[in-house]
Simulated scan of single mutants.
Amino acid sequence: MTARTTFLDDRVRASLQAVGAAAKRGLGDAGLAELVQVRASQLNHCAFCLDLHLGIARKQGVSERQLDLLAAWEEAGDVFDARERAALALTEAVTVLTEGFVPDAVYEEAARHFGADGLAHLLALIATINAWNRLMVTRRIPAGSTEW
């Protein structure tokens, strides 16, 4: 596949990278941050972001078992703990917005596990990866591309 365009304003790129970095720092759990980004990228069919964040997840020590079962996390039993499941449920709800909103139960469960500060960073991370996914998919940036 050939990219439609690789142009992205440097200020836009830097701003999105800064938001993502701040959200990850604030979340304070690098492995969970990568699980969230991989799951959103799966849902959005973003090969570029999947390739990138799967590699980072492995470097952060996320287990191959978690990565293998991420697409079926709800059925994966104890592979994901309650905090991870809450984050993944929120990621799916924010990414897909099937009902037009994030269900109260999903939001409240995430808030219970993350508190106000952690939840704010988790939401910023989810929003940022969704922005990146949409930029990459729309421009058709292929996995592994060095020009984006």
Rank of each mutant, 00 (worst) to 15 (best):
R85G: 07
A14N: 14
T2N: 12
E34V: 05
P103V: 09
A93D: 00
L97M: 13
N44D: 07
L54K: 02
A111Q: 12
A110G: 02
I141S: 05
F114P: 02
L122H: 08
V102F: 10
A89N: 09
E84N: 07
A22P: 02
A105H: 10
L125F: 13
D10E: 14
R4L: 15
H53W: 04
M1Q: 12
R139T: 14
N44Y: 07
H113A: 06
I141K: 04
G77L: 09
L50M: 04
V79I: 13
F7G: 01
Q60N: 11
A89W: 05
P142N: 06
V102T: 14
G144I: 03
Q42H: 10
E147C: 00
E75C: 00
V38P: 03
T128Q: 09
A3F: 11
L122P: 01
F7P: 03
F114Y: 15
R4P: 00
V79H: 08
A89I: 07
L90S: 03
L32D: 04
S15Q: 14
V106G: 02
V96H: 05
D78E: 15
L70H: 01
G61H: 07
V94N: 02
L27Q: 05
E99P: 09
G118W: 13
L90C: 08
S15F: 15
C49F: 06
G20I: 08
A33L: 05
W148T: 01
A72K: 01
G144L: 02
K24Q: 14
L27R: 02
L50I: 05
V79G: 03
A3P: 08
Q66F: 12
G28H: 12
M1T: 13
R134F: 09
L43Y: 05
H113T: 03
Q66V: 08
R25H: 14
V19I: 15
H121I: 01
D104S: 09
A14Y: 11
Q42F: 08
R11F: 12
R139M: 14
M136F: 15
L70R: 01
L52N: 04
A33V: 05
F7V: 02
T98A: 13
A82M: 08
V106A: 02
T91H: 05
A93P: 03
K59A: 07
I56R: 01
Q66G: 08
E75P: 00
M1L: 08
T128R: 04
A116C: 00
D29V: 12
E108R: 09
A71T: 11
A105F: 10
L27M: 12
P142S: 09
V36R: 01
E109M: 03
G61K: 03
A21V: 03
E84F: 10
H121F: 10
G55L: 01
V106E: 00
L67A: 05
L16V: 09
A3R: 09
Y107P: 00
T6Y: 15
D81H: 10
L54F: 10
V36E: 04
A40S: 12
G26S: 11
L35N: 06
F114Q: 01
A124S: 15
L88C: 07
R4M: 07
R139Y: 13
A40W: 09
A47T: 03
E74R: 13
R139I: 10
S63H: 13
T6N: 14
R65F: 12
R11A: 10
A87P: 01
T128W: 10
T6Q: 12
S63L: 08
R140T: 11
M136I: 12
M136L: 15
A14L: 13
L123A: 14
A21T: 13
A40Y: 05
A72F: 11
L125D: 11
A116L: 06
R134T: 11
N133W: 10
